[in-house]
C-alpha cells in the first residue's frame, strides 16, 4: 500500500547521500540519473502489477486503490526530486 512512498523515500535519501558524501559533480549527476531511472522503473513495475491484480475482498480492493494513490504521490515526488540534478551545477 505504501510502496510508492517508500520508493520516494529511498530515492530521496539516495540522492541526498550522493550529494552529501558523493564527491565530483558529473559523477553525482550520472549516478543520480541512474538511481532515478531504476526507481521510476520500480514505480512502473509496481503500478503494472497493482493494476493487474484486483483482490476479491473489499479491504483488499481498498488497499489496492490506496496503493495506486501512493504511487501517484510518490511518482510526482520522484520527478520533482530529480529536477535539481538537471537544473543545478552542484
Amino acid at each position: 500500500m505504501m510502496g510508492g512512498l517508500i520508493l520516494w523515500a529511498v530515492h530521496f535519501f539516495l540522492l541526498y547521500l550522493l550529494a552529501e558524501f558523493g564527491g565530483g559533480a558529473s559523477g553525482v549527476r550520472v549516478a543520480a540519473s541512474l538511481c532515478t531511472l531504476a526507481i521510476l522503473g520500480a514505480v512502473a513495475w509496481l503500478g503494472v502489477s497493482m493494476v493487474r491484480n484486483v483482490p476479491q475482498d473489499p479491504f483488499g480492493r481498498w488497499r489496492r486503490r490506496a496503493g495506486l494513490l501512493a504511487l501517484a504521490f510518490g511518482g510526482l515526488g520522484i520527478v520533482l526530486q530529480y529536477l535539481p540534478v538537471v537544473l543545478i551545477d552542484r
Binding site: V79, L80, L83, L87, I88, D89, R90
Partner: peptide, 18 residues
Amino acid sequence: LTGLLVWGLLLTSSLSAT
C-alpha cells in the same frame, strides 16, 4: 509547483557563488 520549482532551481543555480 513544478513550474515554480524549475524557476527556483534555475535561479538558485545562477545566483549561487559557485
